[in-house]
């Protein structure tokens, strides 16, 4: 390709006789105007440390307050057990292998329920977002379902399916599907209208436009929906396990919590709550956070993540 400056427009208002040449001016502008590259910050273990330290400190403070309240003996032991007593219950449960069984029962249910919800909600969301009649018909319903606590479905599920896994999955699906659907719909709605036009101008047909433009453009909203969908799966599962307790259902975290209540064992109740929280935080940190961070960073949308 002819590189030399074939344009030194005589009419161009570059002034004077000493024209540095278009290429040079342009290179200068590029250097001046390009946004400064985002600083990478500290790397490796230092970054991990600086990210992990504040929550760790908060945790220590929380336990300290708890310990102080317990030591002040304002409440009887069966209402407020010592942190150490709760820790012993958790530790025992892990040492005897019971905890892993409980966690496995609940987590695998939640994961399967969540994955099924993704498979159901994704085409459903596309349909609601892109087909106007579908949207006016069931859009409000989907939003409404999101505000209905899924625990409300437990009695119906038990009556329809009996005390079995089907009832539990039904509740989990009804909890997660509306969230994921709504996330995808919101993600598609927030696409700048210029992008589909660009797709059409570049020659994309309907399918290619969905594949190359709409879905990637909706990804941040979709991810937010997935994250919320997971949270709703997990909560719904806990609600279902807490209410629908039966030997056939095995011992999940919800049932473990329910047993604690039945035995008036506050240490077990608190241990169960902590384990439920631990799973929620763990999945968020290990699965969703890295993916979300990577997606947002690639688009220059680095928030406070």
């Amino acid at each position: 390709m002819p590189r030399p400056d074939l344009v030194n427009e005589p009419g161009a208002p570059t002034g004077g006789g000493r024209d540095p040449g278009l290429a040079a001016v342009e290179a200068g502008l590029d250097a001046l105007d390009a946004p400064a590259p985002a600083s990478q910050g500290r790397r490796g273990w230092r970054r991990t440390l600086s990210a992990a330290l504040p929550p760790l400190l908060a945790l220590v403070a929380f336990v300290a307050v708890w310990q102080a309240l317990w030591a002040s003996a304002l409440w009887p032991e069966y209402k407020l057990p010592a942190p150490l007593a709760v820790w012993n219950v958790v530790w025992e449960a892990f040492r005897e292998g019971e905890a892993l069984g409980i966690l496995w029962t609940s987590v695998h249910r939640a994961v399967i329920g969540f994955l099924v919800a993704v498979v159901v909600a994704t085409p459903f969301g596309l349909l609601v977002a892109r087909v106007r009649p579908v949207r006016s018909a069931i859009g409000p319903l989907v939003t409404g379902l999101q505000s209905l606590p899924s625990v409300a479905w437990v009695p119906a599920a038990v009556l329809w399916f009996g005390l079995n896994d089907a009832a539990i999955y039904f509740v989990v699906l009804l909890g997660a599907v509306p969230s994921i659907t709504n996330g995808l719909v919101a993600g598609i709605e927030q696409i700048p209208p210029i992008l589909p036009r660009v797709g059409a101008a570049l020659g994309a047909n309907r399918w290619e436009s969905a594949r190359h433009i709409l879905l990637p453009a909706a990804l941040p909203g979709y991810l937010a929906g997935l994250k919320q969908g997971w949270a709703f799966s997990w909560r719904s599962l806990m609600a279902a396990e807490l209410i629908a307790v039966s030997p056939q259902l095995g011992l999940g975290l919800g049932a473990f919590l329910q047993h604690g209540q039945a035995l008036s064992d506050m240490t077990q109740v608190i241990a169960a709550i902590l384990l439920i929280l631990l799973v929620g935080i763990g999945v968020e940190l290990l699965a969703f956070r890295p993916v979300e961070r990577r997606v947002l960073r690639a688009r220059g949308l680095v928030g406070v993540l």
């Binding site: 390709m1 002819p2 074939l6 344009v7 161009a12 278009l22 001016v25 342009e26 502008l29 105007d33």
Partner: peptide, 16 residues
């Protein structure tokens, strides 16, 4: 400034 440079650039590319 950028507009001025890009106009010249467009003319160059159009000719090329």
């Amino acid at each position: 400034i950028t507009r001025d440079v890009l106009q010249a650039e467009l003319l160059r590319i159009w000719r090329a």
